[in-house]
Design a protein around this nucleic acid. Structure first.
Length: 859
RNA sequence: GGCGGUGUGGCGAAAUGGCAGACGCAGCAGACUUAAAAUCUGCUUCCCUUCGGGGAGUGCGGGUUCGAGUCCCGCCGCCGCUACCA
């Protein structure tokens, strides 16, 4: 006798069988236009998951949340008659994979292959309907050949400000094409992470620490590849408008791009032929500028610092440089700085004001120099107070007639007023409201060549090279100090199969250790940097469309079919976590726009509709983490309750977008529901075998029919709204109803299985087949059956219960004919004994009748 | 500090401005069973009750409305992201 507890239903047997069936039949393989058997009359639906990073730890329960949602949509749309593209792949280059390889002492190619095999097996165990023939792997030479090819497109093009789009570099008529290419080399201070042995993009650094591993990051000047994403800043903001994306993500992107309107103003350095340009969003406060501040890294400091101040300035710059970004932000509470000994001349009033350096001014933003207006900027005020610099009020919250404001050079502490108001102490601007004052001062500055209106962005160009082994090599060579692209025919540029791929701990990339590989010709050497992790994920959704194409990154026809179509076009639904709000989602938009401008893709935006699934928390209500020991492994859940239970539970937990805590007893509840579905059809015989139960070809009665059609309606609408939790609730209501009905009508059960199929496909397919063996039914797999339609006539009753209220409080209920006239309803309501009791002796002021709902009697 | 989200039973949650708490978990009771598990049936927001019913209730305070969880104004708490961005 088995010591196994009897399973309420044999999910393990069913699930393995159907997964094998889908694989054998290639059920979820979808054809491209032009392929034999392709049906062009069907509309397309492209439903995309954010492909996973195949880490060594395998899937966690967060992965299947989004994946189940898209799988439901995919299976549903398929039943609705769409050609559904639902692919999966691996984002396998990058730091964590390489760190993992180093830790386990294996080559990243080996560990990556293992991790992918593991992930893939896990995904298959959940029964996702992916078209595995379209699987992509960013580390596959057949894939990154095209990543490199896209890099060449960037390299060979420039952004034409006239046309506001990328064009081939051949249309550039200027002197120095190297200065305008979308991919270019720059020597600038970058985020160097000693621990990881590489530089990082701004987006990969938070609070002065690396996103990966949380290691300290310092600024150091290095020669690096950059992508000119800033050229697209405005379009990246503007074109968010038409997208069906969560407002939070759009605002995060806007925020990151950080557009601000203002002016650049030139300040002459006193006694020197040199000017300093500052950027300000408040040119109207120019009369209140009492000193300038320059970022410590700004080279102009070398030219203006006086001899007496040099030691102090040098000491301060060295101290700042030694500070990591982390320290710099942590110590932000306390302002620090040094006077350069120099003065600048305020262009509007000729006043000599001191020039300071301070690390609260950042080199990378604006011009790396500011005019300080302590009366109207918190940071400037703090600094001015610390160093006893003058504070002058030039904006008043209220309009002031005649003279006013504080004494012109008062250094007395006053409240910082950073809002908009009216100009004071500002010569010709006096009395003007802030917005007019801004316009007026800009006009005057421009007329005299002292400045101009401009727009500034927080967004910087994308630092695109890494000093690591596990990434795409650049298709670039260096000859006599000049870079040039290799020809397309030489792609892919594969990295050498190195044994020693560890970072050297210096900015020298590991690839440079292989002299044979580096040597390209007698004089030319290969670029030894590699691309960052984000490169491969910037365009993978395009490769799925035509994953095997050896001649193009994606064929034109296939691209137009899957990405084109109705107006906005692009991927129809993209589901993934918020963590990619500004990194992947902005980089991908940028690349896509370049490809669009160059005529390689047919839409300006890649992802039409974006949905973020919420975080799944541990049972203790906090984020799952190894250290807390609250991580749930999907494999364990499948082992105990089956894949269908895992899928349904993750959808039943709550709204897709919300964060929600895991609950094992909740899984059990959903499991019980699926077992009830099973027993709707099957029962155990004396021998303990599952056999067909009390099912018959009978007509459902009226109540049953109502449940059937209400379920079709609710599930259909809820899937469209991604409200899977309530769709499942409705199916539970269906099952609860039919549990009490014998014999159970076959037609009703079939309908249930059709709508259940996207959620619990193994169970639904199994029961569908079982029914078909006994009762002749529709041919073919359940996956290919049409989605059922509901008939509204079965949803309406001829009688309806109305709530009777007196002054808004419920006092009674009555049943009336659906088509009863308002007057009849009112009469029936007034006739109710309870209503008479409550209204006794009081005049009725008003009666509100809402047909089908209620009657409210107002006294 | 900024932006976004969110507040409803013991818990996860549900409610086109119209019966608050569907559905599920947990709990209680009953059936079946020698017994337990499983399964099935019923109850389950809180307070009062003479068991007929009555009152309160969706973070807090106002407002609009015949009627507000839902709309408007003002607060408070929690979560996430971001932050010397001039």
């Amino acid at each position: 006798m088995s010591n196994d507890r009897r399973k309420p239903y044999p999910f393990d047997d069913i699930e393995a069988r159907w997964q094998a069936h889908w694989e054998e039949q290639q059920t979820f393989h979808v054809l491209n236009p032009g392929e034999p058997g392709f049906d062009p009359s069907r509309p397309k639906y492209y439903v995309l998951d954010m492909f996973p990073y195949p880490s060594g730890t395998g899937l966690h329960v967060g992965h299947p949340e989004g994946y189940t949602a898209t799988d439901i949509l995919g299976r549903y749309k398929r039943m609705c008659g769409y050609n559904v593209l639902h692919p999966m792949g691996w984002d396998a280059f990058g730091l964590p994979a390489e760190q993992y390889a180093i830790r386990t002492g294996q080559h990243p190619a080996v560990t990556t292959a293992q991790n992918i095999a593991n992930f893939k097996a896990q995904l298959k165990r959940i029964g996702f309907g992916y078209d595995w023939q379209r699987e992509v792997n960013t580390t596959d030479p057949g894939y990154y050949k095209w990543t490199q090819w896209i890099f060449l497109q960037l390299y060979h093009s420039w952004f034409n400000p006239e046309t506001n789009r990328a064009e081939p570099i051949s249309t550039y008529t200027g002197e120095e094409p190297a200065r305008v290419r979308l991919a270019y080399v720059s020597e600038a201070p970058v985020n160097w992470c000693q621990e990881l042995g590489t530089v990082l993009a701004n987006e990969e650094v938070t609070d002065g620490k690396s996103e990966v591993g949380g290691h300290p990051v310092e600024r150091r000047p290095m020669r690096q590849w950059m992508l000119r994403i800033t050229a697209y800043a405005q379009r990246l903001i503007d074109e968010l408008e038409g997208l069906d994306w969560p407002e939070s993500i759009r605002s995060l992107q806007r925020n990151w791009i950080g557009r601000s309107e203002g002016a650049e103003v030139h300040f002459q350095v006193a006694d020197l032929e040199r000017r300093i340009t500052v950027f300000t969003t408040r040119p109207d406060t120019l009369y209140g500028a009492t000193y300038l501040v320059i970022a410590p890294e700004n080279r102009i400091i070398d030219e203006i610092t006086t001899e007496e101040q040099w030691p102090a300035v040098r000491e301060y710059r060295e101290r700042t440089a030694r500070k990591s970004d982390l320290e710099r932000t942590e110590l932000a509470k306390e302002k620090s700085g040094v006077w350069t000994g120099a003065f600048a001349v305020n262009p509007v009033n000729g006043e000599k004001i001191p020039i300071w350096i301070a690390d609260y001014v950042l080199l990378g933003y604006g011009t790396g120099a500011i005019m300080a207006v302590p009366a109207h900027d918190e940071r400037d005020l703090e600094f001015a107070r610390k160093f006893a610099l003058p504070i002058r009020e030039v904006v008043s919250p209220e309009p002031r007639l005649g003279l006013g404001g504080s004494s012109p050079c008062s250094a007395e502490p006053l409240e910082c007023f950073a809002g908009e108001g009216y100009a004071v102490n500002s010569g010709p601007l006096d009395g003007l409201p802030t917005d007019e004052a801004k316009r007026e001062i800009s006009r005057r500055l421009e007329a005299e060549g002292l400045g101009y209106k401009t727009v500034n962005f927080k967004l910087r160009d994308w630092l695109f090279s890494r000093q690591r082994y596990w990434g795409e090599p650049f298709p670039v060579i260096w000859d006599y100090g000049e870079h040039s692209a290799v020809s397309e025919a030489e792609l892919p540029v594969t990295p050498p199969a190195m044994v020693d791929f560890k970072p050297s701990g210096t900015p020298e990339p590991p690839l440079s250790k292989d002299a044979d590989w580096v040597r390209y010709s007698d004089t030319a050497r290969r670029e030894t940097n590699t691309m960052p992790q984000w490169a491969g994920s910037c365009w993978y959704y395009l490769r799925y469309i035509d994953a095997q194409n050896a001649d193009r990154f994606v064929s034109k026809d296939a691209e137009q079919y899957w990405m084109g179509g109705d107006k906005p076009g692009g991927v129809d639904l993209y589901v993934g976590g918020t963590e990619h709000a500004v990194l992947h989602l902005m980089y991908a938009r940028f690349w896509h726009k370049v490809l669009f401008d160059l005529g390689h893709v047919s839409t300006p935006e890649p992802f039409q509709r974006l949905v973020n699934q919420g975080l799944i928390l541990g049972e203790d209500g906090v984020k799952m983490s190894k250290s807390r020991g609250n991580v749930v492994n999907p494999d364990d859940v499948i082992l105990q309750y089956g894949a269908d239970s895992l899928r349904c539970y993750e959808m039943f937990m709550g709204p897709l977008k919300d964060a929600k805590p895991w609950s094992m007893t909740g899984v059990e509840g959903v499991f019980r529901f699926l077992a009830r579905v099973w027993r709707l059809v099957m029962e155990e015989n004396q021998a303990g075998e599952w056999v067909l139960g009390k099912v018959a070809e009978t007509e459902p009665d009226k109540a049953a029919r109502k449940v059937i059609h209400a379920t079709i309606k609710k599930v259909t609408e809820d899937i469209e709204d991604l409200a899977f939790n309530t769709a499942i609730s409705q199916m539970m209501i269906f099952v609860n109803h039919f549990t009490g009905v014998t014999p159970r009508p076959v037609s009703a059960i079939r309908t249930l299985l059709q709508v259940l199929n996207p959620f619990a496909p193994h169970l639904a397919c199994e029961l569908w087949d079982t029914l078909n063996q006994r009762f002749p039914g529709p041919q073919g797999d359940l996956a290919d059956q049409p989605w059922p339609a509901y008939d509204p006539q079965f949803l309406v009753e001829d009688e309806v219960e109305l709530v009777l209220q007196v002054n808004g409080k419920i006092r009674d209920k009555i049943v009336v004919q659906l088509d009863a006239k308002n007057a009849e309803i009112e009469a029936a309501a007034m006739a109710s004994p309870k209503i008479q009791e409550w209204t006794a002796g009081k005049p009725v002021r008003k009666v509100i009748v809402v047909p089908g709902k209620l009657v409210n009697i107002v006294l």
